[in-house]
Computed example of a mutant assay.
Amino acid sequence: MAADRQWITTPINRPLLRGAIELETTSQGLLPHRLPGWARAQCADPLLAMVESQPSGVRLVFRTRATAIELDVLPTRRIYAGFPPRPDGIYDLCVDGRLVRQSGVAGGNVMHVDMATGSVRCEAGVPGTLSFDGLTTDDKLVEIWLPHNEMAELVALRTDAPVAAIEGAGLKTWLHHGSSISHGSDAASPTGTWPAIAAALAGVSLVNLGLGGNALLDPFTARTIRDTPADLISVKLGINLVNTDAMRLRAFGPAVHGFLDTIREGHPTAPLLVASPILCPIHEATPGPTAPELADGRLLYRAAGDPCEVVAGKLTLEVIRDGLSRIVAQRALADPNIHYLDGRVLYGEADHAALPLPDRLHPDAVTHRLIGERFAELAFASAAPLDPAQGKADRISG
C-alpha cells in the first residue's frame, strides 16, 4: 500500500457485487457462492462445494474517479497429486466495458488433492493484495472480475477516491447454467469464458451457474434458477450426465422435464433456451464414465464406457441431443418461449478439425471466444431466442 496516498476503505457488500447468489461471512471477509446455503446442504459432494465457490462470472462493479485501486483477497488454490500444476487465478479489470488490466495475487490457501484416494489436505495461507494503478481521473465504470477457477475471499477494497455502487445499470439479466465449459474450464481469464464473452457482446448482465462436473439436473440447481431474478435463461445440459454415467435414458427424460418445470415455476414466460452439448468426439457414440489419464505429462480424458451398452439405456451425446430436441419440441406446443439449440452449431466437426479439444473434453481459450461469439449471434441477435429487447423478468417466487 502506497504510504503517500489518502486511501478510502469501502465495505464490500451486496450492492458492489454482480453474479453471486449468496455471500458468506468468513473470518477473513466475504466468500461469494453461486449456490445458496440450503442447496449446498443438500449435497455433500466435495467437487460441487469447490466449483460453486469458484466465482465464475462474479465481479465487483462500481463508479469512481480513483486512479488507484487495491483489493485484499484470500485465494484458495488446488494442487492435484501426480498431475501438472494448475495456473493461478487471474483478476480482470474492466473500465467502461474494456479490459484494461490483468493481475494475480500472492499468498492464499492451498488444497492438496489426491484424486486416487479422495483425500484433501488444506494448507492455510494469508491474504494478498491486488493493485491497479495509473487509472484516469475521470468518472468511470469499474469492474473487477474474480477468477473463474479458484476461490477468492474478499477482504478489503481501497481506492484513492470515493466509490459509488451501481443500481441496476439498465441491463437485462441473463442467467446461464451449464457444465465445466460454461464454468470456464481452460479459458484464459474470467472475462474470457464463453458466457462472459457472449454477455459482453449482447450487452446483458451475466449470472453464471456453470458448475464444473455438476450440470446433473439436480433439483436444488433448478430451484436456485427458479428463485433467482432473471430476464433471460439458458441451460446447457448433457455432457456431465455422460461424464459421471449418472443416469439411464429412462430417468433422463423425466428429469429434464422436472428441471424445466421447476424453472418455469419462477419464470413462467421468460425466454428459455435449452442447449445440447458441443461436439466431443470421445463421447458422441460412446457412453461414460469419463476417465482421466496422463500422457507425456499432459492430462487427457477418455471414454471408459462401452458403445454396446447404449441399447440398454446408457447415455451418449447423440442420445442426449435427440432427447433434448424432442423434449423441447413437445414443450414448445404449450410454451412458445422455450427454444432448443444444438451445441454443435457452437463447436462442430469443422471446428474440431481446426481447433481440437486439447484434453479431448474442454475447449481452449481461442475456442471459448469462438463459442461465445457464436452464442451471442445465435441466441441474442434481434428476434433470436434470447433477444434482450424481448426478455422481461417474470419471476413470481420470493
Rank of each mutant, 00 (worst) to 15 (best):
R5M: 14
T10P: 08
I12L: 06
N13W: 02
N13L: 03
L31H: 04
H33I: 07
P36D: 08
G37R: 08
V51Y: 05
V58R: 11
T67E: 12
A68T: 13
E70T: 02
D72H: 08
R78P: 04
I79L: 14
A81G: 09
R86H: 03
P87W: 02
G89H: 06
C94A: 13
V95P: 04
R98T: 04
M111K: 04
T117W: 09
D138H: 11
P147W: 11
E150P: 03
A156T: 01
L157I: 09
T159K: 01
A165L: 07
A165R: 06
S180I: 03
S180T: 05
A188F: 13
A200K: 10
L209A: 10
L211E: 07
P219Y: 00
A222I: 00
R226C: 12
V242Q: 07
V256I: 06
I263M: 09
L273H: 05
S276T: 02
C280I: 15
C280W: 09
I282S: 12
H283T: 14
A285L: 12
T290H: 05
E293H: 13
V311C: 09
G313D: 06
T316P: 15
D335Q: 14
N337K: 09
L357Y: 14
D359M: 00
L361M: 10
P363T: 05
R374A: 13
F375Q: 07
A376M: 13
A376P: 12
G391R: 07
R395T: 12
R395K: 15
